[in-house]
Each structure stands twice: as structure tokens, then as C-alpha cells.
């Protein structure tokens, strides 16, 4: 499973690093990467992770999940 996220509000490198760290803490996530420059994140997991869980993980760090797309 791969999901593409659009995240708003990040404007420094540690912001992106924080979101990435927070996403990796979700149970079942294999890999997560967040780019400050494109404001996109990619989450890869074995099982299906609910959008809500991802939304919470992003909100926890102080940013907003604008859009989520499955592949």
C-alpha cells in the first residue's frame, strides 16, 4: 500500500523531518518520506492504514494534511 499526502504549513527542514518521524511511528508503516519542497509525503505500509490515523500523525506535529491519495 502506498499513499501520497499533501501537507501544508511546513516551512523548515525540521518540520518535514518531524512529520516524517511522526508518520513512521504509525503501526504498520514500512517507510515514510516527506519533502519540504514539494509539500508531498509518501507512506508505504503492508496493511491498509486509515486516512484518519495519517491525518492525526500529521496534526500531532502541528501541520495539516490537505489531501490523501491511494495508489
Amino acid at each position: 500500500m502506498k499513499k501520497k499526502l499533501t501537507i501544508s504549513g511546513m516551512h523548515c527542514a525540521s518540520c518535514a523531518a518531524n512529520v516524517e518521524r511522526s508518520l513512521k511511528k504509525i503501526n504498520g508503516v514500512k517507510s515514510a518520506s516527506v519533502s519540504l519542497l514539494t509539500k508531498k509525503g509518501f507512506v508505504e505500509s503492508d496493511e491498509d492504514i486509515s486516512d484518519d490515523e495519517i491525518r492525526k500523525a500529521v496534526a500531532r506535529t502541528g501541520y495539516r494534511l490537505e489531501k490523501i491519495e491511494g495508489e
Binding site: 504549513g9 523548515c12 527542514a13 525540521s14 518540520c15 518531524n18 518521524r21 511522526s22 500531532r60 506535529t61 502541528g62 501541520y63
Partner: peptide, 14 residues
């Protein structure tokens, strides 16, 4: 932004 992060222990430049 800076303080929201702090409250969850996610510190950033803000």
C-alpha cells in the same frame, strides 16, 4: 507552529 510542536515534543525551527 512553534508552540504546537513543543506541546507534543516535536520541536522545529519555529
Amino acid at each position: 507552529g512553534g508552540l504546537t510542536g513543543v506541546s507534543h515534543f516535536y520541536f522545529n525551527m519555529d
